[in-house]
Design a protein around this nucleic acid. Structure first.
Lengths: 244, 244
DNA sequence: GAGTGGTCTAGACCACCAA
DNA sequence: TGGTGGTCTAGACCACTCA
């Protein structure tokens, strides 16, 4: 491939390759869980050296978009694999015990986006959305009251049956049912007092301190695709965060 | 440098170089903020190629232990630089406004490690520790009640004067006064009800929901060097977390 | 212009995996 | 045994910084 010739805004080759690979991912050329072509093949295809492809893949791998397995190949990351089913769930038991997660469906409604939600999801105010409410229980004890909002367009056909079948992992359901893969999320945490209905669902008195987790999830290209508010009882659990 | 000759447990060369560089950092050969030798110099010193040194430095740079500056050199990261003074503080105002942080000293005592603290800090139960309590105010409003415990040995001479002079940034004080640089921290978050004395300090009623942040900070070699419990009022602030 | 980190290449060899 | 990713090298050239 031609070198950069005094290009106005310089962009490294490997970043351009990264974009090309990402485009193939968006286009669905390689689906979640599948293996992508080997570095040598991609190098030939893009007419660059193997080292340049490697650098592009390295970058996508650190972003958890691709997964490298020595001796086997490079794979498209997925939320369905057992190991990473709860990749975005940072809540763990204080005593470190393994827990059984269960999903208790509350409601699933067709609604319209408020101004706030429309700005977050990058859609028009009043655009069609789908709202899901559910209760997550750990080892039988209700711990998280979840309120989820997604734009209706990419999730046409999402209903209570699909939510109940998802069995707690909305992300793998989004992936298999709608081809929407989340690659990144931002969370904002607060301590709040439990409101009446939430307190009732969690079996608490009103005003009990809850950890409020507001999450926005992004798919390829940093497109916001889900808003979520989780209210968590943290008496026996905590949220883990690593600072580096 | 000699290649690996059928070594029982294989370790890449660049990881060994990484260890050597880290050792020089621990030994204080290059101090925080200083520039380390160029890649070419280090390659000559360790008798490996520049690319191998580069890979070791890359790794240390992504861990925020070194900082690369194109055209200038590679520098030892520090907590004193203005830009990253609050590197470990994830609490930001909901409206995104910039705020003035101030430090209100409460107490500084010589104590002995409880069983819990001794396990966390990797010292003997009953070993000498130093406990600091303080109030952090943002734009004049008290927002965080901090309880800090460090082992006495590495922080000999730490007293109320030094805490007050630190003006909120304990980490840059640890660095300049005691040569202890924190490179990583783990935080565990919960929602709790404000206890009496904390509520009073923050100007709240007892039982008010607070965000509890328990933090353990590590210096080179993953040595735990500080335990901290912050109780935060999150009415107008939230804790930011990125999931990838 | 000299020195630094950043990119890109081409090729060799190693470790890991599966058939 | 062949294919994959992982390491290492040597050398060329580019972009950035500062005197």
């Amino acid at each position: 491939m031609d070198k950069q010739l005094t290009s106005p805004s310089y962009r490294p080759l490997y970043e351009q390759i990264k974009v090309l690979i990402t485009q193939s991912l968006i286009a669905g050329e390689w689906r979640p869980g599948e293996m992508i072509p080997s570095e040598i093949e991609l190098a030939a295809r893009f007419k660059v050296s193997q080292g340049t492809v490697r650098k592009a893949i390295d970058s996508l791998a650190t972003e958890n978009i691709l997964i490298r397995r020595q001796g086997k190949g490079t794979f498209v990351a997925t939320h369905s694999a057992d190991v990473i089913k709860l990749r975005f769930l940072r809540l763990t038991a204080v005593n470190g015990q393994k827990e059984l997660l269960q999903n208790e469906f509350i409601s699933c409604d067709k609604t319209k986006a408020s101004t706030y939600i429309s700005q977050i999801l990058g859609i028009k105010a009043g655009a069609a959305t789908i709202e899901v409410k559910r209760l997550l229980t750990f080892s039988g004890r209700p711990l998280i009251y979840d309120h989820i909002i997604v734009p209706a367009a990419p999730f046409k056909g999402l209903n209570s049956v699909k939510v109940e079948e998802s069995n707690g992992s909305m992300y793998s359901m989004y992936e298999s049912q709608f081809g929407v893969r989340m690659i990144r999320a931002e969370e904002r945490l607060k301590a709040v007092a439990a409101e009446k209905d939430v307190a009732k669902s969690l079996g608490l008195r009103e005003g009990y301190p809850l950890l409020s987790i507001e999450r926005v999830s992004f798919t390829y290209g940093d497109n916001p695709m889900e808003w979520r508010l989780g209210l968590c009882l943290t008496d026996d659990h905590h949220y883990m965060s690593e600072l580096e």
